[in-house]
Design a protein around this nucleic acid. Sequence first.
DNA 1: CCCATGACTGATT
DNA 2: TAATCAGCCATGG
Length: 107
Amino acid sequence: MTTSTYHGIYAVVSRIPRGKVATYGQVALLANLPGRARLVGYALSALTDPSVPCHRVINAKGEISRRNGGSEADEVQRHRLEVEGVFFDSHGRIPLELFRWRLYADE
DNA sequence: CCCATGACTGATT
DNA sequence: TAATCAGCCATGG
């Protein structure tokens, strides 16, 4: 791996505004890595820097992607988002049409 | 080098 | 609307 790839991913995630979310695919696209959403997920799992708001990255269905073996990190992520004003529907999913980060509208 | 395993996605059924 | 499938690619055994 050429850390520059991961660095670009972290740079994009760092630009997600408070109260907004982005999908793995969206982050991949903005990081100039179209179709490599999976790589974004891998980069986040390897991330240790707490200054990167990685809790604002969710999957394309609007759900929080689960970690291995019932980790409670998922619930922590959900709570962080709720604190920022992000709403979850009865299916545990975020209405992307309302909270999705739009580069030219939000920022 | 081969194979399995993921914080994934979009199209197809 | 939900389940499947085929791409995707870094890591570790």
